[in-house]
Amino acid sequence: MNYEEYIADYLNGSLEGEDLEAFERELAQNTELQKLAEAWKSADQIISKHIRAEENLGNLKSTLNHFKTVYFQTEKKKGRVISMRWVSAVASVAAVFIIAYFLFLSPNINNFQLPDYPNAVVRGVQNNTKKGAQLFNKKNYKEALPYLKAVYENKPDDATSAYFYALCLMKVEDYDSALPILDAITQGTSVYKDEANFFAAYCAYKTDKKKDVLNYAMKVGKDNPNYASAQKLIKKLH
C-alpha cells in the first residue's frame, strides 16, 4: 500500500475496512506520513476556503470600492458619492439577475461579448482581411466567414486570423471546425490564449467532449471576464 495516495481518502472519511486499519497503523508509527497528512489537511482546508471565498467576493468588492472612493480620495470626489442605499438596491437587483442567469440559463454563444476585429477600418487596399473584419464587426458572420477563412488559410500561424476565424465559426455554430483552431491558440503564447481557452471549453461543451470542457475551462483565469461562465460549464459536467 502506498500510504501517501490514501491521505485524501483518509481525510475525507472515505477510507474504510482493512485499508483504513492499515493506514492508521502506519500513521501511528510513521512521522513523515503524519507530517504530510497534517500539511495536506491544512492546505486542503485553505484551498477549499479560498476558492469559496473568491466565488462570493463580488458584492463585498463593490462595497469596498465604494468606501475606497469615500475615504481615500480628494474632498471633491467625496461630494459625488452615490448614496449607499441606491448602491445596495441596484446591487441587489443586479445580483438577482446574475443569480437567475447563472442558475437557469444555459451557456449561449449569443450571450458572450465578442471583441472587434482589430484594424478593420484602414484606408487603402481592399483585401480579404479588411472585408472579413468589417463584416465581422457588423455581426454579419455568415458573410464574413469566407473572407476570414481565406485569410486564415493563407496565414494559419497568425493568431489574430485564427482567433477571429474560429469565433466566426462559432457564431455560425460550426463548433467542430472551431475547436481545433482554438486548441492551437491555447497552446501558443498569443494575447488570445486565455480567451481561447474559454471559447474552446464552450465548443467542447457544444460538441459533448466532456473531458475537453474541463481541460480548457480550468485554464480560464480569474481575471478573465468569462471566468464565471467557465465555472458554470464545469458545473454542467456534474
Binding site: 476558492i51 466532456k210 473531458k211 458545473k235 456534474h238
Partner: peptide, 15 residues
C-alpha cells in the same frame, strides 16, 4: 482545483 468543483472523483477521472 478540479477536485474542489464538487464533482465526484470517479466523474472527475472520467472527465
Amino acid at each position: 482545483l478540479a477536485s474542489y468543483t464538487g464533482i465526484s472523483q470517479e466523474k472527475l477521472a472520467e472527465s
